[in-house]
Every structure is written in C-alpha cells, then in structure tokens.
Write a protein that binds this DNA or RNA. Structure first.
Lengths: 367, 367
DNA sequence: TGTGTTCTCGTAAACGTTTACGGAAAAACG
DNA sequence: CGTTTTTCCGTAAACGTTTACGAGAACACA
C-alpha cells in the first residue's frame, strides 16, 4: 500500500460539480475558492465579509480585496437556506380580468419608491406576476410556501380579502397598499383618502353650481371604489342633494369600462351636468363616449377624475384630478413593513400602523 | 449515570431553529416532517414527490396524500442550492430617467404572456426593479452574481448594449425584447418591425397626399427609435421626398417629451401636414401641444402613432396606429429563451433564433 | 513564571433539498 | 432450491452559506 495520497484526497482540488454534462461553467466563485486563494478558512472569510468583530483588520482587508478581484458575491440560495430568510420582498401584481391590453402604469412610481427604500436595508424587491383573473391566491400560496420572499406587499385590496385572511392565518408578514377592514391592527396598511377626494370633488362641483353629478366607479369589491362612492354620497347628502341611483354606474376599471358605462348615465331622464370618474383610464373611455354623443367635456359637461395621472394632464381638455404621491407612498410602505417585522425592526421593536394619505386637488380645465 | 435517554438524544424530537428569539414559528413543514409522519426516509419522500420511477406506487400515493394534508411544498432555497438552479427567470424593469409619474403599461401584457408560458414549464417569473436612470447594470450584476435567476429577459435594448456585453461575457443565459446588433446569433431576441411600420406610415400618408411629414422620436440609443427613423427616411426617399431635418425632433419617450418637442417641428418655416409619433404617450403630449396652438389633430393635421395602445383607441380623435401583439410575444420569447438553454431545452437541443414580428395597422380617425 | 484576558481563527454542524450508491426483499427463472 | 434479476428503499454526501464553540497565541498583570 502506498503511503502517499490515498484515493480519497483530503484536499479536494476539484470539487465535483452537480451540473449536467456540457452545462455551464461555474459562473462565479464560491466562498471556498476565496478561502483557498487566501489560504484561510471559509469561516474567517464569511466573518470578514459579514463585518463581524472577531477578525483581524488586516485579514479583513485581504479578504475584501480578494473578493473584489475574483468578483465574489455570496450565493443567494446558500445564504437564504442557512439564514432562514431570503432578504427579498415580493409585490404581487396581476392583470385585471377585463384587461386585454396594457395596464397598471399606476404602480411603477410606487414600486420605484418601494424598491428604493428596501434597497437601503439591503432587501430586494421582486414582482411576481399572476395570470389574469385568478386573484393571486395560487401565486401567493406558492410564494409563501416555497419561502421565496420574507414578506409580501398586496395591492388592489378588497373589503373582504381572502389573501389577507390567508396570510394572517399562516402568520406570514405582509403589508397592503389600500385598506381592508382589518388593516392597521395586525399588519401595516397605507391608503389614499378616496372618501375625502370623492367628497371634495362633489363639494367643488356643487360650489360651481352643479346639482346633477354622476359617479363612474368600479366594482365595490375594490375598496377604493367603495370609499370613493361613500364620500360622494355623504357629500351629496350634506348639500341636501338626493343621490340618484341612475347617476351611478359601474364598469371595468379601464378605458372600455368608462366607454361602455358613461352613455348609461347620460341617457338618464334627468342627465348629469358633471361626472366624476374613478380613474384616468375610465375617464378617457368616458370622454370618448361623450364626444360621440356630441358632448364636449369641460364645455358642455364638467369632468373630474379621482386618481390623477399624466394622461389627465395632457388630455384635451386637461382633466381636473386628485394627485397621489406614489413614489413617497412606496417608500413609506416599505418603512412600515420593515418596522412591522421583528427581524428587521430597529431597537424599539415592531409597531403596526395604518396611514391614509391625502389626495391633492389639481385644478385644470375640465370642470 | 442513567441508562435512559442521554442528554444528546439520537432522536431530535425538536429540531433546533436558527430564527432569532421570539420569531416566527416554522411556517410550513419540511421534508423531514413528512418523512417522520410517514415513518419513511426523506430520500423516499423526495423521490416520490419528484416522480422518480423507483418508488412503489402505493408509497407514492401515501406521500402525496400526506404532503397535501400537511400542505408541504419544498423550500425553494434548499432546492435551488442542491439543484444549482433557481427555476425562475428575471425580467429587468426600470423606470425611465425622465419618468416622474407612471409608466410602462406596455409591458404588462407582455409579462402576462411571458409568465404564462414559463409557468407551463414550472418556472417562475420575477420582475426586478431598478432605480431610475442607472440602466440596470448594478441590478443586473446583482441578479447574476447572486444566482437569483437562471436567466434574464432584457427590454429597451440599445444598439450597443453594455448589458448584453456583460451577460455574454460571463456566459449567463438571456433573451431580449428588441434587437441589438448581435441578436439571434448567441442569444434569442424578439422584436417588432418598427422599420416597416415607419415606412408604412409614410406610405399611407403620402398616398393621402401628404409631402411634409414630421417624425417625433426618442433617443436613437433606443433601438426602436433608430429603426423607426430608418424606415421613415427610406420611405420618404423612395417617394422622392427629401428628408427635412427640421421635421425630425427628439424627445423623452413620454407625454412631456411629445409636448415639449412638437411645437419645434410646427414652427418650421414650412410646417408639416402630418406627424408620426413613436408611441402613444408622446402622441398624447404632442396633441396637447397642437391643441394649444389651435391645431386640431385629424382635422388640421394628420397623426399616426407607431406603437398603438388603448389610449390611441379611446382618444378623440381616435388615433391611427400599429398594434403589437404583446401577449403572444411574451409567450413566444419565453419559448425561445427556454429553447436556448440546454438544461431546459427539449430533445433537439439548443437553437438560437431571432424573430421580428409585424405591426398591424389599425386605421382610425386621426389621419 | 503563573494566571487570566483578549484577539484571532479553524472546526464542524446546520439550513432543506436531491441523488448516487448499495443492500434487502421479493420475484423470476432454471 | 439455487441463482439471477427486479423492485423498492435507506444511507449519506453534497450544494454554499453562517455561526456556536473552542483552541492557540499574544498580551497583561502579579
């Protein structure tokens, strides 16, 4: 028997690779490569990289330099597995059932803010897409059960939201853009004050002499639709104006919805002199319908949009609307979410809050 | 000494948990729980779950049932680590520098198609957000180096694209929505025929008697801007019309861009009788500017949009445009990407292709 | 020199999977 | 009944990290 190297060498100079034959070379280096290169143990390398105290300042610098040179960065799967956390937050996004083309420009600035704030804490934002119409239950379960993210952010919250029920039941951290009934007690939520905007719109129109005011809204399942309508109703009553069901119409929350539904309220026996649309897309479709009836928005009829957008600003006539501060909202909701998770929270610990932000009126030419 | 259970029991009835104190309970069960519950080894459980042949049909059923009952689903980090693949594809999305509010509704149907097709192969689609303006290099490196996805999909491809250079250099699989110079040789790419659309638009306008045709375009760095302009120029020359630099203007690819730039071409000494806008948002801003100058689109001037959208359809006047089939494009690019990755490809192996899809003219009222 | 403290680092276990390997039991075959 | 094949399953290693533990060295102090 040979005294020299046995068949099983204690120094595995080439680590076996799992990849199928002919597949990709190791794209980046592992912590073992780094350790071998520096003739140091992987434990020390890890500690140096993670800024632990018990490592010599000199060695730390050498490790940092080597990591930069070999452009090492830790494998996310390995890290997540060991730490029990993925260090990423998921935003659930899915197209509306009625939406064949385009959609959701609303979310981009919100996501920009969200991502910016999360990045400050070293967290990644991932947006997970769902198929249209399944209301995310399937995708959400998948994200949660496979532990793909440490928390999720929900949008398009409904009054009774099964996603919220599910997440609270399994105890998975989350936050919502938009209110639900339970928001703010067990999870952070951030919403816009659609109720006040609805009321403000009515106030403004009444002050300008209107008494017949229509409301074009989406399904009441969507909480912002519900809130808008509540504000609208309340303000009308406050002014002593009876709410006329014939002036309220429900449609898909897109151009087609506004187009399809606006003629209904206009054909009422006592037609409105003003219309409040829930958002820009519905207003666009509605104005199209009005134009086809020979009615000119801003001239023959007043138009106000609840959720403003660049579209409103550049439309002719420019539409009066209420502007949300989306990017700051994204940042804020990120803060609130992180504060609600013990593992991420600062010294003062978890605090669950609920905020409702104002919508600022931007007066333009349509009313 | 006691003969009974030693301090270190061989049956660890409670596995130690890494989580910090006071943190979350184990949210879902692991494969060990399943194995213990069935009194079976974890190897067998895994094999049963993964549909391997060497497991008794009866045991497989028992495992499946138990998995459903305990609603087990495999930890993504553990699986990725072992398999060396994350089974998810990343789409890189970032807001434009000039985009303060909203944006990118274009991508939603594309992403819907992409996600649908990927889901058929058991892959997840994640959208990673970048900060506005950094052109994704930072985020891209992060995704690649931490092995967060098995492949990426790029959009807004430039003629010379450093992201493409980077990805090919490190050998990371990817596909592009939009062409670059090298597309189709080493990576799959799918694009729209902006050149033909630009030419078709000119043809159509010339046929209707126009000779002074303006083009509002984005930066030529964005390849679709370049292609559109190339088609525009070629068609003009074909008709014996000299291209007038005063009729070509560059702006941000949003409403503000169109608004700012359209007056420039209108103030030309010999103003245009028709304008081609690169996309819906620029057209919206442009029409706003025209209206302020007392010029009525579709009446005083012809307007065509290269990339159509619902906005064009519902605008007044409804804008003539070229419709992309975004959802099928998403599905197709997913297919192409998967076919280009050996690990995912079918029996016939990897094939790299490049496709250019037509833009279909939708004639409306603006020209 | 002896004792205690502080720095610094290596060792090894663990996170939850998948899978190569081998072995026991059962089945097939002579 | 002996031999070979097949079926089925347990064992253990490995993926790339992080971190508790302990040990050696250096240092301080008496």
């Amino acid at each position: 028997m040979s005294i020299g190297r046995s068949r099983k060498s204690p120094w595995p100079e080439e680590r076996p690779v799992i990849a199928k034959k002919g597949e990709n070379r190791p794209l980046a280096s592992s912590i073992h490569d780094l350790a071998r290169h520096l003739n140091i143990s992987i434990g020390t390398v890890s500690r140096a990289l993670n800024g632990r105290a018990d490592v010599n300042a000199d060695t730390r610098q050498r490790v940092l330099d080597a990591a930069a040179k070999l452009n090492y960065s830790p494998n996310q799967s390995g890290r997540s597995l060991r730490r029990g956390a993925t260090h990423s937050i998921a935003f659930m996004l899915q197209p509306h059932p009625g939406d064949q083309q385009y959609g959701e420009p609303f979310f981009i600035p919100f996501l920009t803010g969200l991502q910016a704030k999360l990045a400050e804490s070293g967290l990644d934002l991932i947006v997970v897409m769902g198929a249209p119409g399944d209301y995310q239950q399937e995708r959400l379960r998948r994200v949660v059960e496979t532990r793909r993210a440490d928390a999720v952010v929900l949008a398009y919250t409904r009054r009774e939201d099964e996603r919220i029920d599910y997440l609270t039941r399994v105890g998975f951290p989350f936050a919502t853009l938009g209110r639900s009934r339970s928001g703010g007690k067990t999870y952070p939520s951030l919403d816009l004050d659609f109720e006040k905007a609805g009321a403000d719109a009515v106030d403004r129109l009444v002050a300008r002499g209107h008494r017949r005011i229509a409301a074009i809204r989406p399904s009441l399942n969507l909480n912002f639709g519900y809130l808008f309508l509540a504000g609208y109703r309340k303000a009308l009553r406050r002014h002593g104006i009876e709410v006329d069901p014939g002036l309220i119409a429900k449609g898909f929350i897109n151009e087609a919805g506004g187009d399809a539904v606006t003629p209904q309220v206009m054909r009422s026996k006592d037609p409105p002199t003003a219309i409040i649309f829930n958002n820009d897309a519905m207003a666009l479709g509605g104005c199209k319908a009005l134009a086809e009836m020979g009615i000119k928005p801003g001239h023959d009829i007043a138009v106000i949009v609840i959720v403003d957008s660049p579209l409103c600003r550049y439309f002719s006539p420019a539409l009066t609307g209420f502007r949300p501060r989306l990017e700051p909202m994204g940042r804020r909701l990120a803060e609130m979410l992180l504060a609600s998770i013990p593992a991420f929270a600062g010294p003062e610990g978890a605090r669950i809050i609920r905020e409702v932000w104002p919508l600022e009126l931007i007066a333009r030419d349509s009313d």
